[in-house]
Design a protein around this nucleic acid. Structure first.
Lengths: 349, 349
DNA sequence: TTGAAAGCGCTAACAA
DNA sequence: TTGTTAGCGCTTTCAA
């Protein structure tokens, strides 16, 4: 039973062909005569032969595997995107190695080092903000790479994402248009995260376009977790000088914020409007349902997979530069100074 | 710059030692004299040498990578578990390849075939219910494996999980103790999923222990999604003959069910009590907060990682057989025939 | 403790 | 189209 795994040589011998022909039958079936192919296939079946990936990788210098490094795998936004990435990659014949650095930039370089050592054909990263060591490794080993969740004119060919700046700007404008002037922001943690900085910048731009300030003490940084949202509300409650709207960087934070409001007896949206971003499935399930911006989560995974494979296989990539986002209006954001029933009437028109 | 990646031979030459010594310096540093080691290390640093994983794998027959096949990567329960699995595996020096079969048993065998071909040192699967082809492959290639989210006396050494039967039984008992007699179940989809079947069995056992039936038309199978929970409520609403409690197989379904109830004007828990399972973070954020069973999600990932590595490295695994779950009582389950304020008073005692 | 050398199983260039 | 053969870069006996 455990008679040592069969090798290609065994297959060739049994099929009565050369090693080369056997190899070709598997890798380029149309470059061998059909009867050769058939004999090899029969031998393969008979021996229950399976390729040895390591040998193949060593000889061909291609591992058929991609590594993806995420901040974390359990944020739903990434989980959904990874699912699409993985499915697409497998369909294209690639394996996916995943790793996460927990928002610690130095860890990312360590991970990448080990990934390089192990050998992969390409890497998928998140965003543009990486330690120099990361880019150094990429360059040194000529690793094809894709920056997902990012747009960057200088590296358009390797980016798959949307403009956080634009999304933040539009959301903030919407909030202002609803009559809010006292607006707080819970954007995430800005250090080593250009997406968070873009959010702050976009929000600030929108507010100042309407002559409103974005107060520094109302920019509450915190992690992308339910807890992060809770804490933001807690912090804003420290004084009586409170905002009427809280723009959160992610739906997760927004849901956490809503939970904290409920626990504190703050009515949403009556006392405080709250908005999110991402439009995760949960956004339309919480009470009140979340006003948010819909982002193409799965699409990013799918396109990142295609893009990295195109890059590896030397195909030109004809995908559009930046993906679109759309505002989704639900009940968690409310026109200022208006009662609930008025808002509902408005919505019915 | 792109002067061809350095090999161990280059290192050996530069260090003035043999290939063998260079190799040993990297893999078994205490089997070489310290000055040899030092010279090799210097050469490694100078050349910026990194191992070639494929060559190493080919020669040593160890890939230092584990593959994990999940039903899906974007269910929060799996995402959290994968995060822990991945972190622990990396800390132990292993890479993680992930794949998902979307609850299609045949796909799992295909994935595994490709994984075997590629070469991994071990695999992590979910549950015990797998196509014969999966176990055949495992056996044929002598692949060390761990069944996560499972307990099975016959394979205790490869299982890391808790008893779904027991958990379901205790939850159902709790519901009965709250005075419910009309109890529906939304357990997931039973085909190819022993965990779902255990839930049904456990629930039925608990009900019949109290002389109650589990009506077949109140076992509403559906996917582990928000939508699955919504649909369950929708289906139960088709007639006026309705349950007073709905036990969901996962918190995700429970949250979906609560959302559907809200949309239909069904008050939870007043008109319908709803319980979940898993105790995901969200469970305590929704309104009403979810009564559920807490399961050791991260622990399963962490222990699965340790277990598979122990198995691979021939260490004996001294972990406890089954992990524990605990009931978490919150507001979504309510004593029958009691008003909301009474329940709250009860809770205060 | 070290060096020499034989593979590991496959691909790809070359010749036939 | 096929066979031959030289590696791919490392690990691991085996002797020294």
């Amino acid at each position: 039973m455990t008679k040592k795994r069969a090798t290609l040589e065994d297959v060739a011998r049994l099929a009565g062909v050369s090693l080369g022909s056997a190899s070709r039958s598997l890798s380029m079936p149309d470059e061998v005569r059909s009867d050769t192919l058939e004999r090899v296939q029969r031998a393969v079946a008979q021996l229950g032969y399976v390729r040895n990936g390591a040998a193949q990788a060593l000889a061909s210098r291609r591992t058929k595997t991609i590594a993806a490094i995420y901040p974390t795998l359990d944020n739903p936004i990434f989980a959904v995107s990874i699912q699409a990435l993985q499915q697409t990659l497998w369909a294209l014949g690639y394996h996916l190695i995943v790793a996460s650095h927990d928002y610690e930039p130095e860890r990312e370089a360590d991970l990448l080092r080990r990934i390089v050592e192990r050998g992969v054909d390409g890497i998928v990263l998140v965003g543009t903000d990486h330690a120099d060591a990361v880019y150094d490794l990429q360059r040194q080993y000529q690793l094809p790479y894709v920056l997902s969740w990012a747009v960057d004119d200088a590296r358009a060919g390797q980016c798959v994402g949307f403009s956080y700046l634009d999304a933040a700007q539009r959301m903030a404008s919407l909030v202002v248009e609803q009559g809010h002037t006292r607006i707080a922001l819970c954007p995430g943690i800005a250090a080593s995260n250009e997406r968070v900085r873009a959010r702050i910048q976009g929000t600030r731009a929108a507010l100042s376009a309407h002559g409103l300030p974005l107060r520094n003490d109302w920019i509450v940084e915190g992690p992308f977790t339910f807890e992060g949202g809770r804490d933001a509300v807690a912090q804003l409650c420290r004084t009586d000088d409170r905002p009427t709207a809280l723009i959160c960087g992610t739906d997760i934070q927004a849901v956490g914020a809503i939970g904290e409001c409920r626990d504190r007896g703050i009515r949403v949206p009556d006392d405080l409007s709250i908005t999110g971003s991402d439009d995760i499935e949960l956004a339309s399930l919480v009470e009140p349902r979340l006003t948010t911006v819909h982002v193409p989560t799965s699409e990013i995974g799918r396109l990142s997979a295609r893009r990295i494979v195109d890059l590896i296989e030397g195909r030109s990539t004809g995908e559009p530069a930046a993906l679109q986002t759309t505002l989704v209006q639900r009940e968690s954001l409310r026109r200022v100074g208006r009662t609930d029933s008025e808002t509902q009437q408005e919505r019915r028109k």
